[in-house]
Amino acid sequence: MNSEFITSVPYLHTERLLLREYRREDFELFAAHLADPVSSAHLGPSDRHAAWRIFCSQAGLWLLHGAGWWTVEEKETGQVVGTVGAFFREESTVMELGWNTWRAFGGRGFANEAAAAAVNHALEIRREPKVRALIASANASSLRVARRLGLAYEADTEIYGKAVGVYTREREGSAV
């Protein structure tokens, strides 16, 4: 893990998207996404109080680890379309990736584009030797994103009592 901490969230730009810090006004869409049983089918829905704790925890990761989650905003409209993260779990030294697209914006390639920016930030800017994503086997859309990002299946594990696959990618020239 990089020992230099970032106290502000770096902005990442793609052709269509801006990846930026979480803002208070982003919470309503975030909470609705976590409460939606379809969107949260793989880890289970969260009530508003749990969603607030998750929202604040993800925002606070930047101060603790110098890595965390971004709100994904469509540049053309300013509409928030989801979140993407490149972060560390408490027990891990391997940077983890995560992505969520709000259901109304699914199928437009936003997850692919945002997650590719997060991978580039992790491997090329931060120079992390390896990244991983934890994905439920039934989560076909996230598995497609992982393949497009060049992540390969490594092993099975559990998160929050749910079985998931570990998908990884190493930085070129990195000796992990």
Rank of each mutant, 00 (worst) to 15 (best):
T101N: 01
A114K: 00
R148G: 13
N2D: 14
A138P: 06
L63K: 09
A86V: 04
E4R: 00
V72L: 10
L149K: 04
H49V: 15
E74S: 02
S141L: 13
Y167G: 07
L17M: 12
G106K: 00
H65K: 12
R24E: 15
A138T: 08
A111Y: 05
L63F: 14
G107I: 01
A50P: 08
L61E: 07
R23E: 07
T83F: 06
S141D: 15
A138I: 04
L64E: 06
L12F: 04
W52G: 02
S141G: 12
T77P: 07
E4C: 01
T71Y: 00
G66N: 02
R23I: 10
V131E: 14
L134A: 03
A51W: 03
E21L: 11
R48S: 09
A31E: 13
A51R: 03
A67V: 14
R169S: 08
F27E: 04
N2I: 14
I125A: 13
S3A: 14
R148C: 12
Q79Y: 01
E73F: 02
E21P: 12
A32H: 12
R108G: 00
V176G: 13
R127P: 04
W69P: 06
K75C: 11
H121L: 04
R169T: 01
E21K: 15
V119T: 09
W102M: 00
M95F: 10
R148Y: 06
R16Y: 05
T77G: 11
R48T: 12
T157C: 14
R108T: 00
F27I: 12
A111N: 08
I159H: 03
A116H: 05
